[in-house]
Design a protein around this nucleic acid. Structure first.
Length: 622
RNA sequence: GGGGGUGUAGCUCAGUUGGUUAGAGUAUCGGCCUGUCACGCCGAGGGUCGCGGGUUCGAGCCCCGUCACUCCCGCCA
């Protein structure tokens, strides 16, 4: 007899064998609930009397014979009851998702009744006794078969939803991914430190969640948007290598790849490092986690390090999907002074104007080009100019209105520059790149997916580096931090004092996978005078810095080490590795898009007593 | 804050130009069935067509408003 004991490596109980034959003790009594799990029995168990507990996955009632699929965390076992069984009467009453305990005898199945689809399919348990541990009312949400169900029903009955095979497996995978991250970080010398949840509002960009203080009337704590300042303080305090599976709270509207309210980051910080050190340290961790959970799909071995400016020009995005082989190129010169007046005039009138080409191998048909053009118009664009190449009387010919306008030589020059051939096409986007690059990136994605050029079965990772330090805020008509105020400008104080702020880069970088930003980090600005100057350029004074950064600015006055780090979005990594398209498919108890928890009923009304203690009077809108 | 989509049985959906008693599958309940593993067969119950108003002899369908869910934009260093 053995008792369930979790195997530390795979969460299955089945490896934990305690062979009582080696002991001289009398056989212990049957465990109250189970002798084996539902994923454990094999034909080597034939003849044994076993006890299983689990949920009724499905009943197949043949009148004189009935089958019950009993399910637990570990698997599925077929239970058989026939009229000779003392448990038959009870068995007939069982319904889906009842929680039951079943005693019975393991029997090897005859060859024609073996179910090769499940690991326990070689055996079945003939029921002798059934105890109902928890009956179920009529289900608001079926578990077996996982039919599509409305999101709100799934969230309200999340405990049933979580019994479903796919979601259950996703959550287990998530847990194993996080355990792997912890192990890998610990192995390379990082230590996990927990940081406060109730803290002060910080100068990061998102809206804070506030928690009223009872002891200090009118004052509020904030939930951390990230443990950013704490981890930097840990570096000042000499802890050298920090990491944390950190909960982060931001009161912003959600997206399919952005949970409302709270999410998790693999947060880390290192002292005495350059940005290359951070990449070299974390690339093996990220690659290792992906390879461990990618189910054999190839993972980028050496992450390309792509400067931000190059990424924008080549892919139209700072989070490019590198599974898509399309690389854009500027072809402005081929249109300058050409017969295609729309582009030629644009280039003449505006020195910033450029023409970007999106090469589309195998896209060389009028039908496809027209379809792309129609799509562009549906996106509010004037259209999408194109050339495609076909064989005409044995000769290669550039076709389409643009080719006619600019003539054979220019058409051929464009084809040569882009390396295109018969059956290929190219699309053009024109204007000020700062304004159109985003659309160009969308067009690149669309061409790639429509032509099937994107290899979906791989994980393409890269670093995007050298982000701009500042950007121009059109609304406020002033400089603003492009990414965050914690990062060090490349060139330091000298650059801030002498260079055009909009040309200054930051020691700031992202990790990107398949078009998703999965991590972001920087070398931090730990020099007080550089910080003050950096803030001065966005119109904030030293007093503002002291107020916003509080303790961290103070800490930097007392021997702050150079340091840097990053934070990886765990939810997104898990989503990618589970092949899910929605964060709710990899999260235990997510909120809906209105940031409500339909199971627990959050947010909820406070009692008058609670409000009195917090010195709060409500002032609802309207 | 703005835009798109969806809303008909517990669920997934059909429902013709606006016209008789709103249908199917599935789930539930009852009956039959000894080798199923999406078991099968027969039957029954189950509807405020999201809600409110309007047009019309007549509205699931047309119009106005509103609510819910979802996707996107803004936002998210």
């Amino acid at each position: 007899m053995r008792f369930p004991t979790a195997c530390p490596s795979c969460t299955a109980l089945s490896h934990a064998k305690i062979d009582i034959e080696q002991h001289s003790f009398p056989e212990p009594a049957m465990h109250r609930y189970r002798s084996h799990t539902c994923g454990e029995l094999r034909d080597t168990h034939a003849g044994e009397t076993v006890r299983l507990s689990g949920w009724v996955n499905r009943v197949r009632d043949h009148g004189g014979l009935l089958f019950i699929d009993l399910r637990d965390h570990y698997g599925l076992t077929q239970i058989v009851a026939d009229p000779d069984s003392p448990a038959f009467k009870t068995a007939e009453t069982l319904r889906a998702e009842w929680c039951v305990r079943i005693d019975g005898v393991v029997k090897k199945r005859t060859p024609e009744t073996v179910n090769a689809n499940i690991p326990t399919g070689g055996v079945e348990v003939f029921a002798q006794e059934i105890e109902v541990l928890g009956a179920a009312k009529e289900l608001p949400l079926p578990v077996f078969g996982e039919p599509d169900y409305p999101e709100d029903t799934r969230l309200k009955y999340r405990f049933l939803d979580l019994r479903r095979e796919t979601l259950h497996a996703n959550i287990v995978k998530r847990t194993r991914i996080i355990a792997s991250m912890r192990r890998r970080m610990t192995e390379i010398g990082f230590s996990e430190y927990t940081t406060p949840i109730l803290t002060a509002s910080s100068p990061e960009g998102a809206r804070d969640f506030l928690v009223p203080s009872r002891i200090h009337p009118g004052k509020f704590y904030a939930l951390p948007q990230a443990p950013q300042q704490f981890k930097q303080l840990l570096m000042v305090a000499g802890f050298d290598r920090y990491f944390q599976i950190a909960p982060c709270f931001r009161d912003e509207d959600p997206r399919a790849d952005r949970l409302p309210g709270e999410f998790y980051q693999l947060d880390l910080e290192m002292s005495f490092v350059t940005q290359e050190d951070v990449w070299d340290t974390m690339e093996p961790v990220i690659r290792g986690v992906f390879e461990e959970f990618a189910d054999g799909k190839p993972v980028t071995q050496r992450f390309p390090r792509i400067p931000y400016d190059t990424a924008i020009r080549t892919y139209g995005s700072d989070k490019p999907d590198l599974r898509n082989p399309i690389e854009m190129q500027a072809v402005t010169g081929h249109f300058a002074g050409s017969g295609f007046k729309v582009f030629a005039r644009m280039i003449e009138a505006d020195p910033k104007a450029e023409i970007w080409a999106i090469p589309a191998k195998t896209g060389g048909s009028r039908a496809f080009c027209d379809r792309m053009n129609a799509w562009a118009q549906s996106q509010g664009q004037p259209g999408l100019g194109y050339i495609f190449w076909r064989a005409e009387n044995g000769a290669l010919e550039g076709a389409g209105p643009l080719a006619k306008n600019i003539g054979e030589d220019r058409t051929e020059a464009i084809r040569t520059q882009l390396g295109l051939a018969e059956g290929d096409a190219v699309f053009f986007v024109a204007g000020d790149p700062a304004k159109f690059y985003r659309f160009a990136g969308e067009a690149r994605n669309r061409v790639g997916s429509e032509l099937g050029l994107v290899d979906k079965d791989r994980f393409a990772l890269c670093w995007i580096v050298d982000f701009p330090f500042y950007e121009w805020s059109e609304e406020e008509k002033k400089l603003d931090f492009a990414h965050n105020p914690f990062s060090m400008p490349q060139g330091g104080l000298e650059a801030l004092e002498n260079e055009d702020p909009l040309t200054i880069k930051a020691f700031q970088y992202d990790a990107v996978c398949n078009g998703y930003e999965i991590a972001s980090g920087s070398i931090r600005n730990q020099k007080p005078e550089t910080m003050v100057k950096a803030f001065e350029l966005v119109g904030l004074s030293q007093a503002d810095v002291e107020e916003r950064f509080g303790g961290m600015y103070r800490a930097f006055q007392y021997g702050a080490p150079p340091h840097g780090g990053m934070a990886a979005g765990i939810d997104r990594v898990v989503m990618l590795l589970c092949g899910a398209e929605n964060l709710r498919e990899i999260t235990l108890f997510p909120m809906n898009q209105q940031a409500q928890d339909l199971l627990m009923g959050a947010p909820s009304d406070p009692t008058p007593k609670q409000l009195r203690e917090l010195h709060i009077r409500l002032n609802p809108p309207q």
